[in-house]
Each structure stands twice: as C-alpha cells, then as structure tokens.
C-alpha cells in the first residue's frame, strides 16, 4: 500500500432521488479524500446531504429510486456500483459505521455482547468463546466498566454513553481501516460527549483507523478533526485543514455559521449574528450559489454555481477570493489556562 494514496477518495459524487417523476438532486459533485489515520469531518446543517453521502459510501442506500453517480474508491476499489455481495465483505470488516442514536441502533432483543460476537463471527472464522473474549476486551478498551457483565446486558439496560461505547467497540471489533461516525455524540450529554470525542480522537493511535465524522456541531469538529468539509444544500462549500478554516473561513456560510454560535467565554454580544432564513430544500435549490439568498455578500456573479477554487490551504466554492475580496480572519485561538 502506497503511503501517498488516500484511503478513501470520493470524486464527483452525485446522489439524486426520483420523486413525482422528476430527479431531485440531494448531493451534487462532492469530492474529498480521507488519508490514512486522518480524521475528516463533514459538517453541515440538516438537509445538507452529509448523512446521505456517508450512507452512499457504505452502500446502505437500497431504494431503487436513487441514482448514484461519480466515484468513491476505497483502497483503490470502486465502491459505487459494487455488488452487494462484495460490499458485505467490506462492511463491518474494513469500513465500519457508528450511528447517532445508540438506543435504536442496537437490536433490542439481543445482548450487547451477542451483537458484537455476531459481527466478529460474520467476518472471521473464530469460535464463540474466542469471539466473546475479543468482545470483552474491546468493551474494556472502550472504557466500559466491568466488560464481562456488560456484554451480557441488553441495550435498554445501559446508559446512552455506555451504549455508544459499545457501538464503537462493535464497529472496531474487526479492526476496520475506516470508521464512519454519523453524529456519534448528538444524542449524548456534554460530559459524556467529551468522553466519546476523546475516544474517537485516540482511535488513530490505538487502532490506526481513519475516521469520517459527520456532525452539525462546529465545536465537535474543532475538538477532533484534521480536515473539514463544510457542506451546504448538497454541495461542498469549503474544504481544508480545520485550523485554517477556523482561523480564516473562506466561504461566507462557514463564517456566518461560526459567528452564529453563542460564545462561552468573553463578552456576551447583545444579539447573536444570525443567518436570515433557512436552508433551501433540495427541490427548491437556487440555480446559482445555494447560499446566495442568505448571503450578505451576494451579487451578480453568484447567479451561476461557483466552482471550487483554491484559496490558501482551503478550497472554496465562492467567488469572493477570486474577486480579491476574501473574508477577514477571525480571532479564534484560545489559550486554556
């Protein structure tokens, strides 16, 4: 395996649903790559297409009304159009997924341990007791107290935090190269969220896994990720290293999104800077830049879809940098005493 070949390379991914006889594009021309042991965050609001992108990469979209085009190469293997049978060899073993709500993501009628054993035994020829030993070890590694007894408990008997740890243990049980985490902490309390983020941050060292983290929370992104892809209304708004994006967002949407988060320190603004209106639904997406109707900088040249251009370390789908009117940088660094 060449070190410079990305683990996952997605190019021009388009996903559209057929509804009432016409194609509604959900995701348009999304390209990104995840390198070995890297954490990439896809961040966006509801309806931005971030979850659909992940589900498509996992091959979990099975409605026939969906059309997927473009390319997603995992270790050089094309995933788009891969037959389900071949996909099964990858899923769970090489690419694993963690979902938002750990309560509903486990089958309620089997114990946690049974469900982790099941995944191990689906991919490796091991005995029941060997699988259980690995399960118990994984649960322990994920910080589950008393893993042997916890393995014999049912999902509803555990707290949200423990369930999500068990979920991650299950996802990692076959040592996958890529972990896709879809809003893994959204259903959790902040103190538990901090624990789980800590766990995810350490995965690359402890397991050598890359992580594709899907979230709506810019704070979560800042805490965990190397690379960030901001999506708005099914398109990439901005892509680049987290530090660069937080220091100087190049897309007005990223900047406005960061500004609209109420600060926890420093002076309190009397009013929060907010973005007027709400994101467009896929069927009502504007012809040009999707953010233009809500953007303070929108002008004539926003009436066509702006191409991704390189600006500093980022690539951004906005005409401002090209026109020499880049956004100012933010005061964002924070020293923790």
């Amino acid at each position: 395996m060449h070190a410079d070949v990305p683990l996952l390379e997605v190019q021009n991914l388009c996903i559209s649903f057929r509804s009432h006889g016409r194609n509604v594009p959900i995701v348009e021309n999304v390209s990104f790559s995840v390198n070995m042991q890297e954490i990439l965050a896809i961040v966006g609001e509801s309806g931005s297409g971030k979850s659909v992108t992940a589900t498509a990469i996992m091959g979990l979209i099975d409605t026939r009304d969906v059309k997927i085009t473009g390319s997603a190469k995992f270790r050089g293997q094309e995933l788009i159009g891969l037959p389900q049978k071949a996909f099964r060899q990858l899923r769970g073993r090489h690419i694993a997924m963690v979902f938002q709500d750990p309560m509903t993501a486990f089958t309620p009628v089997y114990t946690i341990g049974w469900q982790i054993d099941e995944q191990i035994r689906a991919h490796e020829r091991v005995s029941k007791s060997e699988a259980r030993a690995r399960t118990v070890q994984m649960l322990g590694n994920m910080g589950v107290p008393d893993p042997e007894r916890t393995a014999n408990r049912y999902p509803h008997q555990l707290s949200g935090g423990l369930r999500q740890r068990a979920m991650i243990a299950m996802a990692l049980s076959c040592n996958p190269a890529l972990l896709i985490a879809d809003e893994p902490t959204t259903a959790l309390d902040v103190t538990v969220q901090a624990q789980i983020l800590d766990l995810i941050r350490n995965l690359r060292h402890d397991y050598g896994s890359s992580v594709l983290l899907i979230t709506h929370d810019m704070g979560v992104v800042a805490e965990t990720c190397d690379q960030v892809m901001v999506m708005y209304s099914g398109r990439v708004a901005e892509f680049g290293p987290g530090d660069a994006i937080f220091a100087q967002p190049a897309h007005p949407y990223t900047a406005a999104l960061l500004d609209s988060i109420p600060p926890l320190t420093g002076p309190r603004p009397t009013r929060l800077p907010s973005i007027a209106g709400s994101p467009p639904s896929p069927s009502e997406r504007p012809a040009g830049c999707a953010f233009a109707p809500r953007c303070n900088y929108s002008h004539k040249s926003c009436e066509t879809v702006p191409p991704l251009v390189t600006y500093g370390q980022q690539s951004v789908a906005c005409v401002l940098p090209v026109e020499g009117r880049a956004l100012p940088s933010r005061a964002v660094t924070k020293d923790l005493a």
């Binding site: 979902f99 709500d101 993501a105 089958t107 995944q119 689906a122």
Partner: peptide, 15 residues
C-alpha cells in the same frame, strides 16, 4: 426501516 436493521447491514451480515 429501523436503525438497528441498518446497523445489522452495516455490520456486513447477509440480507
């Protein structure tokens, strides 16, 4: 349509 069915598929189990 439940989440856990999606999880089961994501685990790589046969349909």
């Amino acid at each position: 349509g439940e989440d856990f069915m999606r999880t089961a598929r994501a685990k790589g189990l046969s349909p």
